[in-house]
């Protein structure tokens, strides 16, 4: 017992000294579990997030946009891969992690349970959803677990390109025909609040947060990150002449931040609980891809085994 306590003290001292924790280092069980949960949720979000955007590949409005969208979604698949690998460094196999997604046991970001109804949604997803994700991910570049932090450095570079291309789509639409401007405003109206929900419950209602902060897995609170996002995004919306759908939004001179209206947490809890517009479709699509691909994976394994046997003989 004393030994574990000493190990815990050493671990915390290392974290406090801003040294990275590496896979072979001793770590408290809770730290490991917390990371496995967080990183696997993050990985699943990347992979499920391919679906709402993939919804527009075949309908992208021109060849340049189609190529950019393909490249962007390909990046998300790559992020999923790094993150599943990061989970493996903590002793949980990719198969197990994916199984938890497919069975509905593991969560992914609820934002991907909203539908992409028009082309402007592809702009809004890049601008707002990737924009919100970056806030979190920039913070995670300094997270205490080495493999996660390093994966984030690379992911952030790509995400900032995603965010810019999304904003550019919205910017072009907002300068376009009246129908295009309406499409852009409508997308902002629908994606604004769900994007704010991406930062998670407010600090008062976020039970895991304090421990995560102590372990330096998280380094800024949900509300702090959300505020930074609001401050930045409201100004970006103004530049392209779109209106953020929050009547209570107002610049506050004394805090030097925007005050905003209350988030509808009932909606958030509903979507998390599985009642969002696309929860069933998203999970069904992942399960179908997995099931339909089973014979492909089996063939690859069987062939590799045959080849190894031949080489050994």
């Amino acid at each position: 017992m004393t030994e574990v306590k000493n190990l815990e003290e050493l671990f915390q001292a290392k974290v406090d000294a801003e040294l990275k924790i590496e896979p072979k280092d001793w770590m408290p069980d809770g730290y490991r579990k917390n990371l496995v949960r967080q990183i696997s949720q993050h990985a699943h979000s990347e992979v499920v997030g391919m679906l709402p955007e993939g919804n527009w590949i075949t309908r992208a409005p021109n060849l340049r946009r189609k190529a950019i969208l393909l490249a962007k979604i390909q990046d998300e698949a790559g992020h999923g891969l790094y993150l599943y690998s990061a989970v493996e460094t903590l002793g949980t196999t990719r198969e197990k992690t994916v199984e938890d997604l497919l069975s509905g046991k593991a969560k992914y970001s609820s934002i991907f349970n909203y539908p992409t109804l028009t082309w402007a949604d592809i702009g809004a997803v890049g601008w707002l959803v990737d924009g919100a994700a970056i806030m979190n991910q920039v913070m995670l570049c300094r997270t205490s677990y080495g493999p996660y932090a390093r994966a984030m450095v690379r992911i952030c570079k790509e995400e900032s390109f995603h965010q810019r291309q999304g904003y550019e789509i919205m910017s072009v639409l907002s300068k376009g025909t009246p129908a295009q401007r309406e499409m852009a405003q409508d997308a902002l109206n629908r994606w604004w609040w769900p994007s704010l929900m991406m930062f998670g419950p407010s600090d008062a209602n976020s039970p895991h947060s304090a421990q995560s902060m102590k372990w330096k897995i998280k380094r800024q609170s949900n509300d702090e990150l959300r505020q930074t996002f609001v401050d930045r995004t409201v100004q970006q919306a103004e530049v392209i002449g779109l209106k953020v759908p929050d009547p209570k939004l107002k610049w506050n001179e004394s805090t030097q931040h925007y005050d905003s209206g209350e988030i509808d947490w009932t909606e958030f809890n509903n979507v998390v609980a599985g009642n969002g517009p696309c929860n069933k479709e998203r999970l069904a699509a992942r399960n179908k891809a997995h099931d339909d691909g089973a014979w492909v994976r089996e063939a690859a394994m069987a062939y590799a085994a045959k080849k190894a046997k031949k080489q050994a003989a």
Binding site: M50, I57, L70, A285, G293
Partner: peptide, 18 residues
């Protein structure tokens, strides 16, 4: 492009999109 997000495994999804 129709395969994107629906490939038999992530590596293949990436390869097909490539």
């Amino acid at each position: 492009g129709e395969w994107c997000g629906h490939g038999p495994q992530l590596e293949e999804d990436i390869a097909l999109t490539n």
